[in-house]
Design a binder for these strands. Sequence first.
DNA 1: CTACCGATTGACT
DNA 2: GTCAATCGGTAGA
Length: 203
Amino acid sequence: MKRQPRPLPREFYDRHPAGVARELLGKVLVRKTAADVLRGRILEAEAYLAADDPACHASRGRTRKNASMFGPPGHAYVYPIHSRFCFNVVTEPEGVASAVLIRAVEPLAGLQQMQNRRQRQHVRDLASGPARLCEAFDIDRRLDGWDLTLGRQLWIVDDGAPPPLDESVGRSSRIGVTAAEHLPLRFYIRSHALVSGPRRLRA
DNA sequence: CTACCGATTGACT
DNA sequence: GTCAATCGGTAGA
């Protein structure tokens, strides 16, 4: 029986969020609950910077909501928006508040459970979009601050699949942000049907 | 306490 | 393509 890949180590996350966002493409998000194991390949991620980035939730200092972003790298930052949730991984050393938002994954395992949670049948509707992904993977505020290196409940692995080549990785401005619109901090698998966002940013 | 608003989504033209 | 629902977090009185 094949050994399960280990969670990405803390060092993976301990660097600039743009590098983490790019390197997370092709990695596999794993969610284990009492009942299910869900897996999805990361297709799209956005970096939020600790400095000179007004779109970053930490740009105006520490609050109760963004506290986990100021914590050590390799933990989750889960926040609510519009009655939904978005999932980030915390990057850079403790005290440096930066993160990477996971915007879309390709469902690999647990499709049935995702369909049930999302109340949608089509794969396109399961985990394309940050809040859809959270609903499909049963991620909410309970997992804010969760340590992603433990290999329990929620973590990320390299399953050995070849990483995407540079020419297959697209880069664009971040979706939905009203501040710092020009920064090209969104990374995604080019032409993958399950990437979220408007068509003009997908090519 | 009230007022405002968003790293969204789904329904609709 | 457009648009409104929705509510926790934050700022300000």
